[in-house]
């Protein structure tokens, strides 16, 4: 149907596993950035060329692949967090859960009453699998930044679903972009939160030093 779309979606699902299995935040941020870029290229593959499409593609790649990862890396550096220390569920169980979720996504997608032209495409299972991976990340990680990463993965899943509906409801795609903005605000919130915490801790240490 769409050449290379299946390969790209398989790649997206592999990145899900990478995000689930890596303990380093740097790796997960890069994984999500790569996922965003892959998803940004997808609409470009699916439709015939137009300047409007090019602008949308560039916009998605800039937002998902450059801006948000850049903000996240900045937040990580400010908060001095490099790895998720103690996730609620370990990495290997999380990977296995992710694999089960992916398999279930395929089973579920086969049961959905889809439009005939959407049947047999990888979009629906990939979207559900990415959604579930995002959920897993959100639920199992403690650090706020890795939760934002989970949220981004979740949002990517919604975006994949929206790709199928671009002709029917363009609003869905716009809503996807809005969700991205929301994540941006999340990130800013974390940064500000950490800065304020940092300052207060510095203050208390100075106070104790004064006492002595």
């Amino acid at each position: 149907m769409y050449p290379f779309a299946d390969q790209a979606l398989v790649f997206v699902m592999l990145i899900n596993f990478l995000a689930l299995g890596s303990s380093r935040m740097n790796v997960s941020v890069r994984a999500v950035a790569l996922q965003g870029v892959t998803l940004g290229i997808l609409p470009g593959i699916m439709h015939t060329f137009s300047w409007h499409l090019l602008a949308i593609t560039a916009g998605i790649i800039l937002a998902k692949g450059v801006a948000i990862p850049w903000l996240l890396v900045g937040a990580m550096r400010k908060a001095e967090i490099r790895r998720e220390v103690e996730p609620l569920i370990g990495y290997i169980p999380a990977l296995v859960l992710g694999a089960i979720a992916t398999a279930l996504a395929f089973v579920f997608a086969a049961k959905l009453p889809l439009a005939p032209e959407h049947q047999g495409l990888l979009f629906i299972p990939a979207s559900i699998a990415t959604l579930l991976t995002g959920f897993l990340l959100l639920v199992t990680r403690r650090k706020a930044i890795s939760q934002v990463i989970g949220y981004l993965v979740l949002e990517n899943g919604i975006f994949i679903f929206g790709l199928l509906l671009t002709e029917a409801m363009p609003v869905m795609v716009e809503a996807g972009a809005l969700l991205d903005l929301l994540v941006g605000i999340f990130v800013m919130g974390i940064v500000i939160n950490h800065i304020s915490r940092e300052f207060s801790s510095i203050d208390t240490s100075r106070l104790t030093a004064l006492k002595e």
Binding site: M13, F17, G21, Y91, I92, L95, V96, A99, A103
Partner: peptide
């Protein structure tokens, strides 16, 4: 090592 091996199992299962 077990992590990488489990990951390869998941790739094959996928």
């Amino acid at each position: 090592i077990p992590q990488i091996l489990v990951a390869s199992t998941i790739l094959a299962a996928f």
